[in-house]
Design a protein around this nucleic acid. Structure first.
Length: 128
DNA sequence: CAGGTGACTCTTT
DNA sequence: GAAAGAGCCACCT
């Protein structure tokens, strides 16, 4: 069975916060998983944000199409749900967000800036 | 409590 | 620039 936060229609408070952040993404803008997670209070929890989206259902009316990977792409979803990815691309273009042929969005121009610009982080994760 | 998993992200090869 | 390896977080079994 698919992994979900719980069998109940209501999600956990943490996931709810993530959903709330996603709902705050202005139209015509996109945010990254890491960005959403950080705003939700989970720095470095990009995967948690992804899980929150995965567990959510279309009935939640979440603008998941505005959540992209750090490189401006859709990530593995393009492989898991190619149909959904196509819909996502159309939705973004309908909002005024141009998507390149490779399925990439210019985060420098259409990235969401909730409060501060993007401070260059030195080496948070990935240090081996 | 411990092990396994993933719509991620980063640094190094 | 692509591929591989390592790290983090929260949820599930």
């Amino acid at each position: 069975m698919p992994r979900r936060a719980s069998e109940e229609p209501e999600v956990n408070a943490l996931y709810h916060s993530i959903h709330a952040v996603i709902r705050r993404i202005p139209k015509g803008r996109v945010a990254t998983y890491g960005q959403v997670a950080e705003l939700a209070g989970i720095p470095g929890g990009a995967r948690v944000a992804a899980a929150a989206l995965k567990t959510s259902t279309p009935r939640d009316r979440l603008p998941w199409q505005r959540v992209l990977g750090k490189r401006g792409g859709f990530g593995r979803i393009a492989i898991l749900d190619p149909v959904g990815a196509a819909i996502q691309r159309e939705l973004l273009e309908a909002e005024g967000v141009p998507v390149g042929d490779a399925g990439l969005v210019k985060l420098a121009d259409y990235g969401w800036l909730p409060a501060s610009p993007r401070p260059p982080r030195r080496r948070a994760p990935g240090r081996r």
